[in-house]
Amino acid sequence: MRRIDWRGALLRPQFMALAAVLGINWLLFPGFFDITLQDGRLFGSVIDVLNRGAPVAILAIGMTAVIATKGVDLSVGAVMAIAGAVAAVLVTGGSSAIVAVGAALLVGLLCGLWNGILVTYLEIQPIIATLVLMVAGRGLAQLVTEGSIVTFSDPVLIFIGTGSLFGMPMPIVIAAVLAIGATLIVRKTALGLLIEAVGVNRSAARFSGISSGLLLVVVYTFAGFCAATSGLIVAGDIRGADANNAGLWLELDAILAVVIGGTSLLGGRFSIPMSVVGALIIQAMNTGILISGFSPEFNLVVKSGVIILILVLQAPMTSQWLRKRMSEGKAQ
């Protein structure tokens, strides 16, 4: 088993960045870390960061595996919209919530399978293969909802988006379960190593007897499943399926979360927990901007500035330089 160096892990740039962003939020708004119990549910800005960060974190879980294989999945935002639309239309049409949730997840799996087949067997570059569904998927979702927001009042679907378990909002619970589950699966089975092997050198993986084709299909299918889960949360949150806006551009946030988490777009080594941390950094920033009272015209500027800073801190050049400075400091 991996022996974890906790001190080393906590000194990673991602944790420092998260701490810095949270710290700035606290300076902007002293009540940032206050948590109260409201109707049996934890309530506070930190909870908001976790709760609002959950959809992107869940996307990032699936995206991490895809990027580790040297791929990328641009369609997850559209798949979110499709899954939400399917669930909403089914419950408003009289189906039970179980059927609706099951159908939405199944549709997500099928979308992922489609991507996987395009990438693996038709050998289309992942960015192009998943672009197909990114563009067409939102159209499909709009067909399902007939262009309008399909509002529902099904308690189960709403619970997925806004309910709570032991005081913890459901999106956080779901994201945590998925993150821990996925991490355990990839690390306790051989999947993690095999995914990294395929990402590092697909040809060598083939020569080593790894069924890389099947592995890739599974990885993209899992990303589709994560996207559908995220789509259910987002739909449940607003009690409706908004095919035009659900998950719009979230694929980019998910990719960013993975990259901030330290998984290279060139494939290979990956870490699901660090991608989740990446998603939380992004959301902490969003929440910070909301409560800061800045004029909305500054949102994107602030966000991009912080992201550039994080990526620079993470760059190998910077870490070498820092290490050198630190060892020089010690020498003196």
Partner: peptide, 17 residues
């Protein structure tokens, strides 16, 4: 091109097959 997994460790390269 077809043999080593450059970024993986010696240990992982040995046990991969």
């Amino acid at each position: 091109l077809d043999g080593i997994f450059g970024d993986l460790s010696v240990r992982e390269n040995i046990i991969i097959a």
